[in-house]
Amino acid sequence: MREINLREALGEAIAEEMERDPAVFIIGEDVGKMGGLMGEIGGLYDKYGAEKVRDTPLSEAAILGAAIGAAITGLRPIARMRFCDFMGIAWDEVLNQMTKMRYMFGGKIKVPLTMDALSGAGRRSAAQHSQSLEGMFMCIPGLKIVLPSNARDAKGLLKTAIRDDNPVLFLEHKRLMWGGPKSEVPDGEYTVPFGQAEIKREGSDVTVVATAYMVHRALDAAEKLQQEKDISLEIVDPRTIVPFDKETVLNSVKKTGRLVVFTEECATGSFAGQVAAIVADEGFDYLDAPIKRVNAPDTPVPYGIILEDFWMPDENQLIKAINEITS
C-alpha cells in the first residue's frame, strides 16, 4: 500500500475520473498551468489542454452557472471554487439553481456537478478564507456534502462524487491539504460510498462524532484519555454529512451511552447541532449523560496565532467535555 496525503489523493481522483469518462472536465480559477492553488491537479492541463481544464475569469457565478449548464446537457463538470468562503459570490447558483432544478422540473433533469473548495481554519488566513460552512450548505435539500478526514477516504469519496448524478460539495480542510498527515491508499481502483460513516477508533465509554481535521484531534485526545484516565473513546467519522449515516452514530451511542459532537464550526446552525438533535430524538433512551457539543465560538475566524488557536476547537476542550460527562 502506498501512503499519500489528501492533496495528492484529490489530484489522483480527478485524474483517474477524467481518464475514465470523457464527460468529466474541470472549470475554475487557476486550474490551468498553475494546476490549482497547491499544484494538486498539476499535469492535467498538459494532458487535456485548455478545452477540458478551463481557466476562467474571476467570475464565480459564471463558473457555477456554466457548470450547471454543462451538467444538464450531458457533461460532468468539476467546478473548483478555491475557498468555500468564495461561494457566497455564487450563492444563487447553489441555493436556487443546481439544487432546485431536479425537483422543480419534476425529476426530469440531472445535475451531475462536483464542486470542491478549501474549508477550515488554522492557516492564519482570517475571516474570509477560513470558514467551515457545512452547516449552512446542509440546509439546502438537493445538495450532497463530503467532508473527508484522510487521503484514502478523500480519493474514494471524490470519485464517487464525480460519478454521482447530483450536485456534490466536496470540502477539503486546509490543514489536511497543506502538508497534512499521510494515509495508506489502495493501489488500484476503488471508491468510497456516500452515507457510510467509518469508525476511526473503536471504544466503549464515549462516542465522539468528528469531521475533517477534527477527526485527527479527536484521535489524539482518545490516545491521551486512554493512557491517562483509561477512558475509551469511539471516534465516528460521518465522511458525508449529506447523506448522513445516522445508524452508525446511533449504534455507537447505544454501546457507549455518551455522545460528544466535535466539529470546527460556529455552534449556531451547525451540523453538530443536527447530530445532537437526531440523537436526542431517536436515541434518548441510550443516553446516560447529556449530549455535548464542542465547536467554535459564534464569531468570525480571527487572524493571528493566539486568537485563531483559541477559536479552533482542540483536544483540551474535547477532553474537558468528556470529563464533564464521565466523572
Partner: peptide, 16 residues
C-alpha cells in the same frame, strides 16, 4: 440566473 447557465450549455456543445 439563466445567463451563465446558457453559457454552460454553449460550452457543453463545444466540448461535446
Amino acid at each position: 440566473s439563466g445567463i451563465p447557465i446558457a453559457t454552460g450549455a454553449g460550452l457543453s456543445a463545444r466540448i461535446r
